[in-house]
């Protein structure tokens, strides 16, 4: 008997997380030969990030693609995916997403009635400024920087020397415009879709961390599927990982080309800036690694990656 699962997410259709949902829908409907159908509810129709996560826990929403930072309020080991510098690049992300240590972290969600099918990307994060782009560590000093109010991000941006400022996402555009904020740490595709480039005039390609998301299913719903359907779900989730992650990389390149067209200054940090940033982050990374063996195992796996560039 074919099932239809409702998948809700919190972003607009231009965001990589929507792409994840669409790819999964295509893959699982093909692999299961129509036995598992997915109905996508984009753009907060079924609720915002926190509600969707709770919804999958409670079984009021079958599935979601939801950022790992939201899940860190349930399972602190999720912070592993966003420790600055740990995931080196998109190629590394695609490998680490299907690694054993990542799987162990995702499986901690089982005790919250959720099955995590896979880890995907919402876009590498960079640093957008109202004034000149930041070219050295000192440039961060005191910048009122919008971060999501999450402990890890507050720690990271305090360590970088900025003045981390939590603010509702909807207020960011006008806050950048009026100077309530000096900067925001953000992914390139959002700079494009939210038109942040109109009000902020410099991008520093810090690439400090990624914005991973997890594909989640309610445990009761998943257990209620036939073994064949479950297998199709897992296979589809696995199959789309690499293409999804690499598609975000391509998207980033398109945005960069567009920013160049618009003559928005984009700075690639030089070697000494990169080293200084890594040094500033070191105590934060070590503290989080020491706090949780799951996080440490993931970081060790990341260190063992062959260098790609």
């Amino acid at each position: 008997e074919p099932v239809t699962l409702r998948l809700g997410h919190a972003v607009f259709e231009a965001h990589p997380n929507h792409d994840t949902a669409v790819r999964f829908k295509e893959a699982v409907e093909r692999i299961s030969a129509g036995e598992v159908k997915i109905e996508i509810f984009p753009a907060r129709q079924l609720g915002d990030v926190k509600e969707l996560m709770e919804g999958v826990q409670l079984g009021t929403v079958d599935m979601t693609v939801n950022s790992s930072s939201a899940l860190a309020t349930l399972e602190p080991s999720m912070d592993a995916f966003q420790l600055p510098g740990v995931i080196p690049d998109y190629e590394g992300f695609a490998k680490l997403a299907v690694s054993e240590p990542a799987r162990r972290i995702m499986d901690t969600l089982g005790k919250h009635d959720m099955v995590a099918l896979g880890l995907y990307d919402g876009g590498q994060r960079h640093f957008l400024t109202v004034g000149e782009p930041v070219t050295a560590m000192e440039g961060f000093k005191g910048l009122k920087t919008r971060v999501a109010p999450v402990k890890l991000f507050l720690d990271v941006w305090s360590a970088a020397g900025t003045n981390p400022t939590p603010m509702a996402y909807g207020e960011v555009y006008s806050a950048l415009e009026t100077g309530t904020l000096d900067a925001v740490e953000i992914n390139l595709t959002s700079i494009e879709s939210e038109k942040f480039f109109e009000v902020a005039k410099g991008v520093t390609l810090t690439g400090h961390y990624f914005w991973p998301s997890l594909m989640l299913v309610n445990k009761g719903v998943f257990d209620g599927l036939t073994p064949e359907q479950q297998e199709a779900m897992r296979a589809a989730a696995q199959e789309i990982t690499e293409p999804q992650v690499m598609a975000v990389k391509e998207l980033d390149e398109k945005v960069l080309a567009h920013l160049a067209e618009l003559k928005v200054p984009v700075i690639t940090p030089d070697a000494s800036f990169k080293a200084a940033f890594r040094d500033a982050m070191k105590p934060v990374v070590e503290r989080y690694r020491a706090a949780d063996p799951l996080i440490d195992a993931f970081a060790i796996e990341a260190e063992a990656l062959p260098a790609t560039n």
């Binding site: 609720g47 009021t60 509702a168 207020e171």
Partner: peptide, 17 residues
Amino acid sequence: FLVALPQRMVAGMDQFV
């Protein structure tokens, strides 16, 4: 969906703006 009713109430009110 019964448990979604109180959840939606809280989520509706719990907005900074």
